[in-house]
Amino acid sequence: MKRNVGKRDRLFRGLGALVLLACAWAAPLPLAARLAAFGAAGAYLLFTALSGTCLGYALMGRSTCPLSRS
């Protein structure tokens, strides 16, 4: 899949992922609720931050990457 997540977007996704994963670890909820509410979203944001691709952006035809010059 083509990269469609820019550097600044990746940074904020990574920070958001860390916050959500910390909430999944520390929230005073049952484990299943923590994983469903915070863990899944945090894992997806971390994946998109590391890979540079976002399925939602691809489906909408969006990109935050700068245009590459030929």
Rank of each mutant, 00 (worst) to 15 (best):
M1N: 09
M1S: 13
M1K: 12
V5Y: 09
V5M: 13
R10N: 07
A17W: 04
A17P: 00
A17M: 03
L18V: 08
L18Y: 01
L21Y: 07
A24K: 00
A26T: 12
A26M: 13
A26Y: 13
P28S: 01
P28F: 01
L29M: 14
L29Y: 08
P30A: 06
A32L: 10
A32W: 07
A33P: 00
R34C: 07
R34G: 02
R34W: 04
L35R: 00
A36C: 04
A36V: 02
A36H: 05
A37H: 01
F38R: 02
F38W: 07
G39C: 11
A40S: 11
G42V: 00
G42R: 00
G42C: 00
A43V: 10
Y44F: 14
L46C: 13
F47C: 08
T48G: 04
A49G: 13
L50D: 05
L50Q: 11
G52T: 06
T53K: 12
C54W: 05
L55R: 11
A58T: 12
M60S: 09
G61A: 06
R62I: 07
S63T: 15
S63G: 04
T64G: 06
C65M: 14
P66S: 11
L67S: 06
L67V: 09
S68L: 11
R69P: 10
